[in-house]
Simulated scan of single mutants.
Amino acid sequence: MNYLAHAHLSFNEPDILLGNMISDFVKGKQKFTYSEEIQKGIVLHRAIDQFTDEHAVTAEAKKVFKPAIGLYAGAFIDVVYDHFLALDTTERTEGEWKQFSSDTYAVLQQYTYVPERFARMLTYMSSQDWLFNYRYRWGIQNTFKGLSYRATYLNDESATAAYTAFEHNYEHLQACYQQFFPLLKAFAWEQYLYLCKK
């Protein structure tokens, strides 16, 4: 899953939120330089990613993007799931999503000991309000361009092809999200409760 989902599935716990958001920037034994609560967020992030990557619904959704971007389809699906989550009024209203985005940046900015790459990214994330703007198709288009720019074997044409596939399969992808996200949320909650008992 992408940043909005990881933030949302941190269940309003600041240390869990930080761990969930920095996980991809923390390698190997670096995890143990953080507090136990932040480590729990890192573990939760990885459990969420594994559940998502291995789920049959995600495999079906990836088929939309594989002709255009091949093995990178999973990363693009994560962004697509965030788009539909940002529009999901069964989780939060539009106003609540706006407040949630602002609150998330504020919490994350309170931490001084974070990976340098994450700190740089957070500056852009907050100033450009990535979390809230996932709800807009132009936000998704911009994110696809960013993914393609950072990927070794993708380019502007890849981003355009992926966005075209997104538009042409919008309702199908939305149905995949609607089927998958309640399952993910239940899984993440169970994992969160398990980690909190440790």
Rank of each mutant, 00 (worst) to 15 (best):
N155I: 10
A165L: 11
E157D: 15
T104D: 06
H172V: 01
G74D: 03
I140M: 12
D88P: 01
N169V: 01
C196F: 05
F132C: 02
A59P: 00
P115T: 04
F65I: 12
S23Q: 03
T90P: 04
K185H: 13
I38L: 10
I69V: 15
Q109I: 02
S158D: 05
A47Q: 11
I38Q: 08
I16S: 01
G19T: 02
D156Q: 11
F180I: 08
S102T: 05
Y81T: 08
Y170H: 14
F132N: 08
G19V: 04
V79K: 03
T143V: 12
Q174W: 03
L131C: 05
E54W: 01
T123E: 11
V80S: 10
T143R: 15
I69M: 09
S127Y: 06
S35I: 10
R120Y: 13
H83T: 01
E54D: 14
L131R: 00
I69G: 07
E96F: 07
K31V: 07
W189C: 03
G41L: 10
Y124W: 07
A119T: 04
C176E: 00
V79Y: 01
E116P: 00
E190N: 13
I38V: 15
E37P: 01
K29Y: 01
D129C: 05
N142D: 15
Q110E: 15
K63M: 14
L9P: 01
G19M: 02
N169H: 15
T104K: 05
T90A: 13
A68M: 11
F25V: 00
H6Q: 10
F181I: 08
A68L: 10
F144H: 11
A75S: 11
G146K: 13
T143N: 11
Q128E: 14
Y149W: 12
N20A: 10
Y72R: 02
G70D: 07
T52G: 07
Q30T: 04
L85C: 05
V43P: 00
D156P: 05
F84T: 04
A151H: 14
R135D: 02
